[in-house]
């Protein structure tokens, strides 16, 4: 599924110019990670502080490799259930940064037309299902989507995303168990960023890894370096192959770190400072750039060009979103039911 937005041109150009499939994949990964980073930076560091984005702002800074590496494996039949830190899924499924920014600003141009904010959005045409706030609520829903795909004879897989903390919810366990019992085609993708709001892993679960939960459901589980986008891609290919072939669900635990507070208002004083430095060195964007240079998949100039194109795209998207009107109060009662 190719990007339908303006800077998609840069993506198409750089992918076409890449000599090998690996190089082309790396270019795609870089583009989407950079786009997610830029859009979220703009939201959190600028628009939120200017009062143009209101309410809660949660970003996936430092975790971009997870949604990008896994999302790029999806085929059009697949249905994706991104968490609040997986913005790139929307871009990969062809939803423009313009509409995502309008969503955050509460404008009519957003996916929920101002009805909801931030990552609380979806689009069934793009096969992206909206989260609700209640964590892990999408997990049983993903199992249901997988059930439907099997029922309908589609070879699609459901991609169910969540954080480490969400695996404490009963809904998570009910959804995973059901998918396992029914051998449903679901890939469960955990971003283990080691904190859930202020709660560290050891207060969240008594096992060392989220993957340790897999055996209880007789479900294969794999731990992957969540800051290595190509490793996430390769692991997702394995997981998807398993699920698509009818063997049942597969759990991927992507180890990463939340490089911000829980949300824009949280200074994360409870996180030992050294951890930010340590994980900062493992930034997934820096790592893919280094890899691209080492492997001769790109020159520094080409990498800079991606960044410039993304910046220009986001400038345009912010302007477009700001020009999109606020919803008219006269529409307040609409859309609760099919017909009023």
């Amino acid at each position: 599924m190719s990007a339908v937005h303006a800077a998609g041109a840069e993506l198409d150009r750089s992918v076409a110019a890449a000599g090998t499939p690996e190089a082309a994949l790396a270019h795609k990964c870089l583009y989407y990670m950079q786009l997610m980073r830029e859009v979220e930076d703009r939201i959190e560091r600028k628009l939120y502080r200017q009062g143009k984005v209101l309410g809660g702002v949660y970003v996936g800074r430092g975790q971009e490799a997870i949604s990008v590496g896994s999302g790029l494996v999806a085929i059009p039949e697949d249905v994706l259930f991104p968490s609040h830190r997986d913005m790139a899924i929307f871009f990969i499924r062809g939803i423009s940064s313009r509409r995502v920014l309008a969503q955050y600003m509460g404008r009519v141009g957003g996916l929920t037309r101002g009805r909801d904010g931030n990552m609380h959005m979806g689009d069934m045409d793009a096969k992206v299902v909206s989260i609700i706030s209640a964590l892990a609520a999408t997990v049983p829903v993903a199992a249901g989507a997988a059930l439907a795909m099997r029922y309908q004879g589609s070879n699609g897989v459901a991609f169910s995303y969540f954080g480490d903390g969400s695996t404490s919810r009963g809904d998570w366990h009910e959804g995973v168990n059901f998918a396992s019992v029914q051998k449903l085609p679901v890939v469960f993708i955990c971003n283990n960023n080691q904190y859930a709001y202020s709660t560290p892993l050891n207060l969240q679960m008594a096992c060392a890894n989220v993957a340790d939960r897999g055996p209880a459901y007789n479900m294969p589980a794999e731990i992957v370096d969540g800051n290595d986008v190509l490793a996430v891609y390769a692991a997702t290919e394995r997981a998807v192959a398993h699920a698509r072939s009818g063997k049942g669900p597969y759990l991927l635990e992507c180890k990463t770190f939340r490089m911000t507070g829980h949300s824009a208002h949280d200074m994360a004083h409870y996180v030992p400072k050294g951890l930010f430095e340590e994980w900062g060195k493992l930034d997934p964007i820096v790592r893919i750039q280094q890899r691209m240079l080492e492997e001769n998949w790109a020159t520094q100039a080409e990498i800079d060009q991606v960044h410039a194109a993304v910046t220009a795209e986001v400038d345009d998207a912010v302007a477009w979103a700001e020009a999109s009107p606020f919803p008219d109060p006269s529409t307040l009662l609409e859309d609760v039911y099919e017909s009023q």
């Binding site: 309410g55 509460g106 929920t112 101002g114 009805r115 609380h120 919803p327 529409t331 307040l332 009662l333």
Partner: peptide, 12 residues
């Protein structure tokens, strides 16, 4: 309040 979910956008 009317019988709708609580909308996000300020105008709504």
């Amino acid at each position: 309040a009317p019988d709708t979910p609580v909308p996000f956008s300020s105008t709504l």
